[in-house]
Nucleic acid binder design. Sequence first.
DNA 1: TGTCAAGGCCAT
DNA 2: ATGGCCTTGACA
Length: 264
Amino acid sequence: MNNGAPPPPQVPFASLVVPNNCSTSGSSTNNNIHWSHVADNNHQWNCSFPRIPPSPDSALGGWSTPSSNLSRHNSDASQRSFSSSSNNTTPPSPSNSPLLSHNRVVNKVEDYGEGDQPEVLLSSNLTSQGISRQQLINSPCPICGDRISGFHYGIFSCESCKGFFKRTVQNRKNYVCLRGASCHVAIATRKKCPACRFDKCLRVGMKLEAIREDRTRGGRSTYACSYALPPTSSGASHAESVQQSQPPTWEIPNLLKLSNETFY
DNA sequence: TGTCAAGGCCAT
DNA sequence: ATGGCCTTGACA
Ligand SMILES: [Zn+2]
Ligand SMILES: [Zn+2]
């Protein structure tokens, strides 16, 4: 809510971790995340609709498609390319159930020659051209700009952001930004404000459901739930824009539920 | 088997 | 707390 508020020079970069019961209204939106998922022994999460394995389709988070729903039956999308249809008739409505926010198929797998493909991935490119996995993996991490190491928790991201997201969710961290929740997250500053970093993780499409509550390793996950990402106004090219303080009305995921620990 | 995304380990 | 590297394991 403090958007636009010039960051006080006093506090360089800082964030606090507060107990979950401490409703951190205002800046950080982290505390508004409400989710629910039930994991069974097979890394599957019971949602309101058929389980669909995750796939790198539309996986570039931030500057990717407006909705991050995953919609393919085969999670092995390596070596493929993706073309997204620019046909987005339904702007994700945050009002309805996030779990059902899945709607149209945004991306479709296609075979794409490895010929002339743009190096820089922009929103416009993604929504109008075929994107190869190679391109995706060669593009910068949508969260911090570092090198992408693979497909993690629903998007292509770097190794550090993968680890950060995992730790944050697993350990039920609840970071709070002290600078207005609009810190720029870059490779050089990503350590400064975990609150804004985590916020960005979610904004660009990392999935909470991808974190296994039972911590089982290996195998393949089949999460499909996707909370509607903030519209990101289909015109916005950066995921950098200030979050639209869209108070989601999701259910609280177990992993994100309370933690009375106080860090920092 | 190979792939590769999820969790674990551990030096910083 | 961070992040690079390792191990795991369902699926193709
Ligand atoms: Zn990153
Ligand atoms: Zn911040």
